[in-house]
Nucleic acid binder design. Structure first.
Lengths: 115, 115
DNA sequence: CAGAATCCCTAATGATACTG
DNA sequence: CAGTATCATTAGGGATTCTG
Protein backbone atom coordinates (compact mmCIF):
# COMPACT_ATOMS: atom_id res chain seq x y z
CA UNK A 1 0.00 0.00 0.00
CA UNK A 2 1.40 3.27 -1.08
CA UNK A 3 0.88 6.54 0.69
CA UNK A 4 0.65 9.82 -1.10
CA UNK A 5 0.62 13.41 0.00
CA UNK A 6 -1.79 14.39 -2.71
CA UNK A 7 -3.99 12.19 -4.89
CA UNK A 8 -2.39 13.25 -8.13
CA UNK A 9 0.77 11.47 -7.05
CA UNK A 10 -1.08 8.21 -7.55
CA UNK A 11 -1.71 9.14 -11.15
CA UNK A 12 1.90 10.07 -11.68
CA UNK A 13 2.93 6.77 -10.17
CA UNK A 14 1.07 5.01 -12.95
CA UNK A 15 1.70 7.21 -15.99
CA UNK A 16 4.73 9.16 -14.81
CA UNK A 17 7.32 6.97 -16.47
CA UNK A 18 9.53 8.57 -19.06
CA UNK A 19 7.74 6.98 -22.03
CA UNK A 20 4.44 5.81 -20.62
CA UNK A 21 2.26 8.64 -21.81
CA UNK A 22 3.75 8.44 -25.27
CA UNK A 23 3.14 4.71 -25.41
CA UNK A 24 -0.40 5.11 -24.17
CA UNK A 25 -1.13 7.84 -26.68
CA UNK A 26 -0.09 5.50 -29.45
CA UNK A 27 -2.21 2.70 -28.05
CA UNK A 28 -5.20 4.96 -27.82
CA UNK A 29 -5.28 5.35 -31.57
CA UNK A 30 -6.79 2.01 -32.30
CA UNK A 31 -6.18 0.40 -28.97
CA UNK A 32 -3.70 -2.22 -30.15
CA UNK A 33 -0.09 -2.22 -31.30
CA UNK A 34 2.62 -4.77 -31.80
CA UNK A 35 5.97 -4.37 -30.08
CA UNK A 36 7.75 -3.52 -33.29
CA UNK A 37 5.16 -0.94 -34.22
CA UNK A 38 5.65 0.85 -30.95
CA UNK A 39 9.38 0.69 -31.43
CA UNK A 40 9.06 2.34 -34.83
CA UNK A 41 6.58 4.90 -33.63
CA UNK A 42 8.96 5.88 -30.83
CA UNK A 43 12.34 5.98 -32.55
CA UNK A 44 14.33 7.22 -29.55
CA UNK A 45 13.18 4.51 -27.21
CA UNK A 46 15.45 1.57 -26.61
CA UNK A 47 14.33 -2.02 -26.57
CA UNK A 48 15.06 -2.13 -22.89
CA UNK A 49 13.04 0.93 -21.99
CA UNK A 50 10.13 -0.12 -24.17
CA UNK A 51 9.88 -3.49 -22.51
CA UNK A 52 10.32 -2.01 -19.08
CA UNK A 53 7.66 0.62 -19.47
CA UNK A 54 5.27 -1.89 -20.99
CA UNK A 55 5.79 -4.25 -18.07
CA UNK A 56 5.05 -1.57 -15.55
CA UNK A 57 1.91 -0.52 -17.36
CA UNK A 58 0.88 -4.13 -17.48
CA UNK A 59 1.55 -4.61 -13.79
CA UNK A 60 -0.61 -1.60 -13.05
CA UNK A 61 -3.44 -3.06 -15.08
CA UNK A 62 -3.34 -0.30 -17.68
CA UNK A 63 -2.45 -2.43 -20.67
CA UNK A 64 -2.80 -6.06 -21.65
CA UNK A 65 -0.15 -8.19 -23.26
CA UNK A 66 -1.29 -10.80 -25.73
CA UNK A 67 1.23 -13.35 -26.94
CA UNK A 68 0.62 -15.30 -30.12
CA UNK A 69 2.34 -18.62 -29.93
CA UNK A 70 4.07 -18.63 -33.26
CA UNK A 71 7.40 -18.22 -34.94
CA UNK A 72 8.45 -15.53 -35.32
CA UNK A 73 6.86 -14.30 -32.11
CA UNK A 74 4.02 -11.83 -32.21
CA UNK A 75 3.02 -9.80 -29.21
CA UNK A 76 0.27 -7.23 -29.07
CA UNK A 77 -0.35 -4.60 -26.46
CA UNK A 78 -3.71 -3.02 -25.87
CA UNK A 79 -5.43 -0.85 -23.32
CA UNK A 80 -7.44 -2.60 -20.67
CA UNK A 81 -10.78 -1.27 -19.58
CA UNK A 82 -8.99 0.33 -16.68
CA UNK A 83 -6.50 1.78 -19.10
CA UNK A 84 -9.30 3.39 -21.05
CA UNK A 85 -10.23 5.31 -17.92
CA UNK A 86 -7.15 7.37 -18.73
CA UNK A 87 -8.56 8.36 -22.09
CA UNK A 88 -9.70 11.79 -21.04
CA UNK A 89 -6.31 12.56 -19.54
CA UNK A 90 -4.42 11.28 -22.54
CA UNK A 91 -6.47 13.10 -25.11
CA UNK A 92 -6.19 16.29 -23.06
CA UNK A 93 -2.44 15.92 -22.98
CA UNK A 94 -2.31 15.32 -26.72
CA UNK A 95 -4.57 18.22 -27.53
CA UNK A 96 -2.64 20.63 -25.38
CA UNK A 97 0.56 19.57 -27.06
CA UNK A 98 -0.92 20.26 -30.48
CA UNK A 99 -2.08 23.68 -29.42
CA UNK A 100 1.24 24.43 -27.79
CA UNK A 101 3.07 23.51 -30.96
CA UNK A 102 0.72 25.65 -32.97
CA UNK A 103 1.48 28.64 -30.78
CA UNK A 104 5.21 28.28 -30.43
CA UNK A 105 8.06 27.80 -32.81
CA UNK A 106 8.15 24.14 -31.98
CA UNK A 107 7.14 21.50 -34.45
CA UNK A 108 7.01 17.87 -35.34
CA UNK A 109 9.84 15.88 -36.78
CA UNK A 110 9.51 14.72 -40.29
CA UNK A 111 7.72 11.42 -39.93
CA UNK A 112 10.36 8.84 -40.75
CA UNK A 113 7.75 6.17 -41.26
CA UNK A 114 5.14 5.87 -43.93
CA UNK A 115 2.02 4.99 -41.99
CA UNK B 1 12.81 25.22 -31.86
CA UNK B 2 12.15 21.80 -30.59
CA UNK B 3 11.08 18.89 -32.71
CA UNK B 4 8.81 16.20 -31.47
CA UNK B 5 7.74 12.85 -32.80
CA UNK B 6 4.27 13.23 -31.41
CA UNK B 7 2.53 16.34 -30.10
CA UNK B 8 2.07 15.01 -26.60
CA UNK B 9 5.83 15.21 -26.15
CA UNK B 10 5.48 18.97 -26.15
CA UNK B 11 3.13 18.71 -23.21
CA UNK B 12 5.47 16.41 -21.36
CA UNK B 13 8.27 18.84 -22.01
CA UNK B 14 6.39 21.45 -20.06
CA UNK B 15 4.77 19.49 -17.25
CA UNK B 16 6.86 16.35 -17.28
CA UNK B 17 9.26 17.37 -14.55
CA UNK B 18 9.33 15.27 -11.43
CA UNK B 19 7.36 17.74 -9.30
CA UNK B 20 5.73 20.05 -11.81
CA UNK B 21 2.29 18.49 -11.85
CA UNK B 22 2.21 18.38 -8.08
CA UNK B 23 3.21 22.01 -7.87
CA UNK B 24 0.65 23.02 -10.44
CA UNK B 25 -2.08 21.09 -8.70
CA UNK B 26 -1.37 23.03 -5.54
CA UNK B 27 -1.36 26.31 -7.40
CA UNK B 28 -4.66 25.50 -9.01
CA UNK B 29 -6.37 25.53 -5.65
CA UNK B 30 -6.50 29.23 -5.26
CA UNK B 31 -4.02 30.18 -7.93
CA UNK B 32 -1.36 31.61 -5.65
CA UNK B 33 1.12 30.21 -3.17
CA UNK B 34 4.21 31.41 -1.38
CA UNK B 35 7.45 29.49 -1.66
CA UNK B 36 7.26 28.28 1.91
CA UNK B 37 3.70 27.11 1.48
CA UNK B 38 4.67 24.98 -1.46
CA UNK B 39 7.59 23.62 0.50
CA UNK B 40 5.27 22.59 3.32
CA UNK B 41 2.64 21.18 0.98
CA UNK B 42 5.29 19.04 -0.70
CA UNK B 43 7.33 17.73 2.23
CA UNK B 44 9.61 15.47 0.19
CA UNK B 45 10.77 18.18 -2.17
CA UNK B 46 14.09 19.85 -1.55
CA UNK B 47 14.72 23.54 -1.73
CA UNK B 48 16.80 22.97 -4.81
CA UNK B 49 14.21 20.98 -6.69
CA UNK B 50 11.42 23.35 -5.76
CA UNK B 51 13.30 26.34 -7.08
CA UNK B 52 14.41 24.48 -10.16
CA UNK B 53 10.97 23.26 -11.11
CA UNK B 54 9.46 26.67 -10.45
CA UNK B 55 12.06 28.32 -12.68
CA UNK B 56 11.32 25.97 -15.52
CA UNK B 57 7.60 26.49 -15.23
CA UNK B 58 8.25 30.22 -15.19
CA UNK B 59 10.47 30.00 -18.25
CA UNK B 60 7.73 28.13 -20.06
CA UNK B 61 5.22 30.82 -19.20
CA UNK B 62 3.11 28.55 -17.05
CA UNK B 63 3.53 30.37 -13.78
CA UNK B 64 4.37 33.87 -12.70
CA UNK B 65 6.80 34.85 -9.99
CA UNK B 66 5.98 37.90 -7.95
CA UNK B 67 8.63 39.28 -5.63
CA UNK B 68 7.68 41.61 -2.81
CA UNK B 69 10.53 43.90 -1.99
CA UNK B 70 10.62 43.50 1.73
CA UNK B 71 12.54 41.87 4.55
CA UNK B 72 12.11 39.05 5.08
CA UNK B 73 11.55 38.29 1.42
CA UNK B 74 8.16 37.26 0.16
CA UNK B 75 7.67 35.52 -3.15
CA UNK B 76 4.41 34.35 -4.60
CA UNK B 77 3.84 32.00 -7.47
CA UNK B 78 0.68 31.90 -9.49
CA UNK B 79 -0.61 30.43 -12.69
CA UNK B 80 -0.47 32.61 -15.75
CA UNK B 81 -3.31 32.70 -18.21
CA UNK B 82 -1.36 30.22 -20.27
CA UNK B 83 -0.91 28.10 -17.20
CA UNK B 84 -4.65 27.99 -16.71
CA UNK B 85 -4.95 26.34 -20.09
CA UNK B 86 -3.61 23.28 -18.31
CA UNK B 87 -6.52 23.29 -15.91
CA UNK B 88 -8.45 20.54 -17.64
CA UNK B 89 -5.41 18.31 -17.70
CA UNK B 90 -4.52 18.96 -14.10
CA UNK B 91 -7.99 18.38 -12.75
CA UNK B 92 -8.26 15.20 -14.79
CA UNK B 93 -5.01 13.97 -13.34
CA UNK B 94 -6.14 14.79 -9.82
CA UNK B 95 -9.52 13.19 -10.24
CA UNK B 96 -8.08 10.01 -11.66
CA UNK B 97 -5.71 9.79 -8.73
CA UNK B 98 -8.57 10.12 -6.28
CA UNK B 99 -10.52 7.39 -8.02
CA UNK B 100 -7.46 5.18 -8.25
CA UNK B 101 -6.86 5.55 -4.54
CA UNK B 102 -10.49 4.78 -3.82
CA UNK B 103 -10.24 1.56 -5.81
CA UNK B 104 -6.89 0.30 -4.60
CA UNK B 105 -5.33 -0.25 -1.23
CA UNK B 106 -3.38 2.95 -1.63
CA UNK B 107 -4.11 5.97 0.46
CA UNK B 108 -3.08 9.39 1.57
CA UNK B 109 -0.50 10.16 4.19
CA UNK B 110 -1.71 11.69 7.37
CA UNK B 111 -1.62 15.38 6.67
CA UNK B 112 1.32 16.66 8.67
CA UNK B 113 0.14 20.22 8.39
CA UNK B 114 -2.89 21.80 9.96
CA UNK B 115 -4.62 23.85 7.33
C1' DC C 1 12.39 33.78 3.91
C1' DA C 2 13.96 32.68 -0.58
C1' DG C 3 17.34 30.92 -3.22
C1' DA C 4 22.12 30.34 -5.24
C1' DA C 5 26.25 27.39 -5.37
C1' DT C 6 28.87 23.12 -4.13
C1' DC C 7 29.91 18.59 -3.97
C1' DC C 8 28.59 14.02 -4.49
C1' DC C 9 26.31 9.73 -5.37
C1' DT C 10 22.69 6.62 -6.74
C1' DA C 11 19.34 5.16 -9.75
C1' DA C 12 17.81 5.52 -14.26
C1' DT C 13 19.09 4.91 -18.88
C1' DG C 14 21.95 3.58 -22.90
C1' DA C 15 24.70 0.20 -25.51
C1' DT C 16 25.74 -4.26 -26.58
C1' DA C 17 25.43 -9.11 -26.99
C1' DC C 18 22.76 -13.14 -26.56
C1' DT C 19 18.38 -16.44 -26.65
C1' DG C 20 13.98 -18.86 -27.89
C1' DC D 1 10.38 -10.74 -33.64
C1' DA D 2 10.35 -10.10 -28.86
C1' DG D 3 12.75 -10.12 -24.92
C1' DT D 4 16.59 -10.89 -21.35
C1' DA D 5 21.10 -10.00 -19.29
C1' DT D 6 25.11 -7.44 -18.52
C1' DC D 7 28.06 -3.70 -18.25
C1' DA D 8 28.97 1.19 -18.67
C1' DT D 9 27.49 5.82 -18.28
C1' DT D 10 25.27 9.92 -16.83
C1' DA D 11 22.48 13.10 -15.19
C1' DG D 12 18.97 13.78 -12.02
C1' DG D 13 18.59 14.78 -7.62
C1' DG D 14 20.13 14.97 -2.37
C1' DA D 15 22.71 17.18 1.36
C1' DT D 16 25.01 21.00 2.76
C1' DT D 17 26.64 25.60 3.06
C1' DC D 18 26.28 30.36 2.13
C1' DT D 19 23.99 34.91 0.91
C1' DG D 20 20.90 39.20 0.60
Amino acid sequence: MKQYNIPVEATLDVIGGKWKVVILCHLIDNGTKRTGELKRLIPEITQKMLTQQLRELEDDGIIERRVYNQVPPKVEYSLTEYGWSLEKILTSLCTWGEEHIAQTGDGLKKDPIES
